[in-house]
């Protein structure tokens, strides 16, 4: 089943990469003018355009790119002259660290908040959780990021204002450099998680078998955690996969705000300079991550809820 899902990703990759290629046609200007340097003659610009095959028909260019890509060659950046694979390899760990930490923080905040809201539904704690979640969903990560920088970096001086320390160099500094950006990024996910879990768990807690469990004399926390949460987690996992995919978009901005050398700012600068090979390298990479996350969510749901696993297969 997993293999089928991965196979289904192939046409999706083709569509995504072709869409990027096609959209690039509508962008004004190309890399040739910049590559030619200051004060370069138009003949020189044309020469570079010719060397890079920038004026070849779209399908031909896409075909060439695809032919190389399936052989594992994503080409070289037009500006840095380094292989695109190398550029991605030196940056993905920053983005992955950020995303991972953001997901962990989201769960640490969202799960308890969701459970408490569901158990105490209708009471002040539920309303407080709802308010906090609405706020979390409404505030964009970069705004939250700037606020966090001002409070924890500038006023309190507890954490660095920006920059990145690799894990290998110092795990403590690595963590310190990622806490604020990960927290800023986790806002939406934590809020969504809390809301989804509250809804899903509230439904489950009204089910008859929960009442039976309580009647058997099980403690309230055991009922919620053992029986309730297991059933409620399935639907939440599916929704989460979608939201974690969206985090990648938020990470682009958060990395820029916190001056993290990840894939995000690199993608933006490559887009601005029309470094198409780099853009085309990063897009399938992120598509792949989103597909894998969805797959992971389905597998998780299957493990939590055997009924779902059977029906999905």
């Amino acid at each position: 089943m997993v293999l089928v899902r991965i196979a289904a990703a192939i046409p999706l990759m083709l569509v995504a990469t072709f869409a990027v290629f096609a959209l690039s046609v509508f962008l004004p200007g190309d890399a040739a003018q910049t590559l030619a340097g200051d004060g370069a003659s138009q003949q020189r610009v044309a020469e570079i355009r010719h060397t890079l095959h920038l004026q070849d028909p779209l399908l031909q260019r896409y075909g060439n790119w695809l032919g190389n890509a399936v052989h594992g060659d994503l080409g070289t950046s037009l500006f840095s002259k380094t292989p695109v694979m190398h550029e991605i390899a030196t940056r993905w760990s920053v983005s992955a660290s950020l995303l991972l930490l953001a997901v962990i923080i989201s769960f640490l905040i969202g799960v308890p908040a969701g459970i408490l809201a569901a158990v105490y539904r209708g009471r002040p704690l539920d309303r407080a959780s709802t308010f906090a979640a609405t706020f979390g969903m409404a505030i964009p990560p970069f705004v939250l990021g700037i606020v966090l920088v001002i409070v924890f970096g500038v006023w309190l001086k507890w954490l660095p204002v920006g920059g990145y320390t690799p894990f290998a160099k110092s795990p403590v500094d690595w963590f310190r450099s990622l806490v604020l950006p990960a927290f800023a990024l986790s806002g939406v996910l934590a809020a969504t998680l809390a809301r989804q879990l509250r809804g899903s768990l509230a439904d489950v807690l009204d089910e008859e078998y929960i009442r039976t469990a309580r009647a058997k004399g099980l403690r309230g926390s055991a009922v919620v955690l053992k029986h309730g949460l297991r059933m409620a987690a399935g639907p939440v996992a599916s929704v989460m996969a979608v939201y974690i995919g969206r985090l990648i978009g938020g990470a682009v901005v958060v990395e820029a705000v916190f001056n993290l050398p990840g894939l995000g700012p690199f993608l933006v600068s490559s887009l601005l300079s029309r470094d198409l090979p780099v853009v085309l390298g990063i897009i399938p990479f992120t598509v792949l991550i989103v597909i894998l996350l969805n797959l992971l969510a389905e597998v998780t749901r299957g493990l939590l809820d055997p009924r779902f696993a059977r029906s999905a297969v």
Binding site: F142, G145, A256
Partner: peptide, 17 residues
């Protein structure tokens, strides 16, 4: 040198650092 990446959030954070 540390890359500023275009100083998206302005120069405030760099001045602080």
């Amino acid at each position: 040198l540390t890359n500023t990446q275009g100083a998206t959030a302005g120069y405030g954070p760099f001045i602080t650092r």
